[in-house]
Design a protein around this nucleic acid. Structure first.
Length: 423
RNA sequence: GGAGAAAUGGCAGAGUGGUCGAAUGCGGCAGUCUUGAAAACUGUUGAGGGUCACACCUCCGGGGGUUCGAAUCCCUCUUUCUCCGCCA
């Protein structure tokens, strides 16, 4: 959520910046300013009404104390009118504040200056590429065929138990998955991230805090009986740890990592691109989350990008990094780098990580603040990234590491797997 | 799931209808003293709105109510604790 003071101060700049997202924010921003002005006017009026009735109440109290009941009763009669108008003003204020909130919720974050213009993923800017795309064997298979051939993943069984998009991992497939989770958590911990385990269901307040709610597209699974949501990413529970917090400036940098399953309804996705592990309703992901001083958040973003690079280097997977264009940038993000691994047998790139700086956008919703060097309270910056999303890494490994004799295991994973080939 | 108790500032803990945004202690910060530190002493120390700055307003778990006036009384929800039941 954008900060009101900022909208007041730099409306024009915001309109210009939001053009990169291909939206005309002017009507919304005008609406915000209009509602804000009305809200403040109502607030002022209410405040002075309350001030007056507070004053009267005190006088009445003193009159009673000194035994002047008649005078007190006289004053009491005067309070009725004040009471009525403050009640009405309070209701107006509520309505205005709610409306204002609703409009603010509709406005996405201001893209960073580095964000390229563009309308779709076609316009994302490749900023880095590394790793060799392997020459595959003659009868190379896509990962879903490999999964079947070596009995690693059973998609049909998942359909039986839950539905499409809920695979069952078996034997060495399950073990490889577990190895990846352990490996990522170990590497993240080495890099200074503290491992935590968080709930996989969150309440409404958490959903609003990180920006998944209001959920217009219905992307989250909603447990209506208890009004809880299945997390679409660990970002939600991990970042919400800091909701309503004021941290100390010495607490920075705050670096956390956690493994969770992620649940996404993926309404509207279907077709060949969602085959196999490409897009699932439930998948595993190891996430890194940071809370930073605004001065250092872009430094932190670079460090996170560097860290994810190292993970992929270690796995020896060919990958590229994209800087997302305005049209592809997430609602809450100011700057996002996507990592894509090359899925050789499918001959396409698969997104396996998304590393973002949200600046104060989430912090403002979360009321996540810190006391700065001068003792002033200000909003912190939040960041997060996948390190990494499992299924597509698995797809990349299966496809890129296939040989005539089976699927080799990346060297760094062998100690975690306990085997070096799937055959 | 049943019965009871509770929820106050960073923490502990007073406060049961008026001048209480809230005693006191601890912690934090600044200062005095000290070669330095500790101790002691003095001062300071919640958040949000509003203002050029004040004034002023709101907040004692959330929401609603009674009253001229609510941290204090009533209703409701949530959470925590104790006991019982069930249970990985």
């Amino acid at each position: 959520m954008l900060q009101l003071q900022h909208i007041r101060a730099q409306k024009e700049a915001f309109i210009a910046a939001l053009k990169k997202r291909n939206i005309d924010a002017e009507p919304l921003l005008n609406q915000v300013l209009d509602l804000d002005e009305k809200r403040r006017a109502t607030q002022t009026e209410l405040d002075s009404t309350l001030a007056e009735s507070n004053k009267l109440s005190k006088e009445i109290g003193m009159l009673y104390k000194s035994g002047k009941a008649a005078e007190a009763n006289e004053l009491k009669a005067k309070t009725a009118e004040l009471k009525e108008s403050s009640k009405k003003l309070g209701e107006d204020l509520n309505t205005l504040a709610t409306e204002l909130q609703e409009v603010l919720y509709q406005i996405p974050n201001i893209p960073n200056a580095l964000v390229p213009a563009g309308s779709s993923e076609e316009d994302n800017e490749e900023v880095f590429r590394e790793g060799e795309i392997p020459k595959l064997i003659e009868d190379a298979l896509p990962h879903w065929e490999l999964a079947k051939k070596y009995d690693l993943i059973d998609f049909e069984l998942g359909v039986k138990v839950a539905g499409a998009g809920f695979p069952v991992y078996k034997g060495k497939g399950a073990r490889l998955q577990r190895a990846l989770i352990s490996y990522f958590l170990d590497k993240n911990t080495e890099a200074g991230y503290t491992e935590i385990q968080v709930p996989h269901l969150v309440n409404e307040a958490s959903g609003f805090g990180t920006g998944q709610l209001p959920d217009k597209e219905g992307q989250m699974y909603h447990v209506t009986g208890d009004n809880l949501y299945l997390i679409p990413t660990a970002e939600v529970p991990v970042t919400n740890i800091f909701r309503d917090d004021i941290v100390k400036v010495d607490d920075f940098p705050i670096k956390l990592t956690g493994y969770t399953p992620c649940f996404r309804r993926e309404a509207g996705s279907y077709g060949a691109h969602v085959r196999g592990l490409n897009r699932l309703h439930q998948f595993d992901k190891v996430e890194i989350v940071r809370v930073e001083h605004p001065k250092h958040s872009y430094e932190a973003l670079d460090q996170m990008v560097e860290h994810v690079k190292n993970l992929l280097r270690d796995l020896k997977l060919p990958y590229r990094i994209l800087r997302l264009c305005g049209g592809d940038l997430g609602f809450t993000s100011a700057l996002t780098y996507d990592f894509e691994v090359f899925s050789t047998a499918q001959d396409r790139w698969l997104e396996i990580s998304s590393v973002s700086n949200f600046e104060t956008f989430q912090a403002n919703r979360l009321k996540l603040r810190f006391k700065d060097e001068n003792g002033k309270t200000q909003l912190a910056h939040t960041l997060n990234g996948s390190a990494l999303a499992l299924p597509r890494v698995l797809a990349g490994i299966l496809e890129n590491y296939q040989t005539e004799n089976g699927i080799k295991i990346p060297e760094v994973l062998v100690p975690y797997c306990g085997f070096d080939i799937i055959s």
